[in-house]
């Protein structure tokens, strides 16, 4: 099972808490997902509304580790300040660091990401960087102190799956001992299984479950997929080949006209 900054998590599925039809469905999805980590965020709170307080009560009942994010931050300063507010609110050193570089694709600003990761690591945070599969960037993130990498599969919320299999496989090959998480872009469980078959340690998703017709059933589907994919990777899959090869022995076949 994946180990993040010395903490072993009993699931390869990390699940977001946004966009569910209702709090009850969110809770049901988490139960069936068996996710060990929930991502959360911080947002403005009005004194006459107190929506955040109700959410806090709900999230405490899930009995999972919390991974706050800096979603929506477009600058290093904004991300760093948000991370500090999240650390105080959720009482955790973990931060899913997002520094967004483009509003259409929501792809990371890789330069700002590396700088923010350096600052936050020096401030005592344990950074989970939402990054691309760029090898040079990932090397830089490790050099500034990150101990986990979270490359995207595809842009957030698209459901397109794993857009760059070569890049993801390459990352696994170059960093065999670093926990790797495919974060974002997954739409269906088979894509999560594929990520596991590449040797990834976990997947992080939200929209694929929350926006499914039956979020709780989809959550269970993803739970089974990550288990299946991880088993397959550990079992050392056969090599693919272009030519057919009969599985049934030819020797002993009856000669019939």
């Amino acid at each position: 099972m994946p180990v993040f900054y010395g903490t072993e998590i009993q699931s390869r599925l990390m699940l977001g808490t946004a966009q569910y039809p209702s709090p009850a469905i969110l809770a049901d999805a988490f139960r069936r997902s068996k996710a060990g980590i929930a991502t959360v965020s911080v947002r403005r709170e009005a004194g006459d509304d107190q929506a955040g307080q109700a959410f806090w009560e709900l999230i405490k009942e899930l009995d999972v580790a919390l991974l706050p994010n800096t979603a929506g931050c477009h600058s290093v300063r904004e991300a760093v300040t948000t991370a500090h507010m999240a650390r105080e609110l959720f009482d955790t050193k973990w931060i899913k660091l997002e520094v967004i570089g483009h509003s259409d694709t929501l792809q990371p600003d890789v330069f700002g990401l590396a700088e923010a990761a350096r600052i936050l690591t020096e401030d005592g945070f344990e950074v989970f960087p939402y990054c691309t599969e760029d090898l040079v960037l990932c090397d830089k993130l490790l050099n500034v102190g990150c101990e986990v990498l979270m490359p995207w599969g595809a842009p957030i919320g698209t459901g397109l799956g794993l857009n760059n299999i070569y890049g993801l496989r390459s990352l696994r090959g170059h960093f065999p001992d670093v926990p790797l998480v495919v974060d974002a872009g997954l739409g269906v469980p088979s894509q999560a299984a594929h990520a596991m078959e590449l040797g990834y340690d976990a997947v992080l998703l939200n929209t694929a479950v929350a926006k499914a017709g039956d979020p709780a059933a989809m959550a269970e589907g993803f739970a089974k997929a990550v288990e299946a994919g991880a088993l397959a990777y550990a079992a050392d899959p056969m090599d693919a080949r272009d030519m057919a090869a009969p599985s049934t022995p030819v020797l002993g076949k009856a000669f019939l006209e």
């Binding site: 965020s41 955040g52 994010n69």
Partner: peptide, 10 residues
């Protein structure tokens, strides 16, 4: 002043 609270996130 910014005042924030826990909220849903992905």
């Amino acid at each position: 002043i910014e005042i924030v609270a826990p909220r849903q996130g992905g």
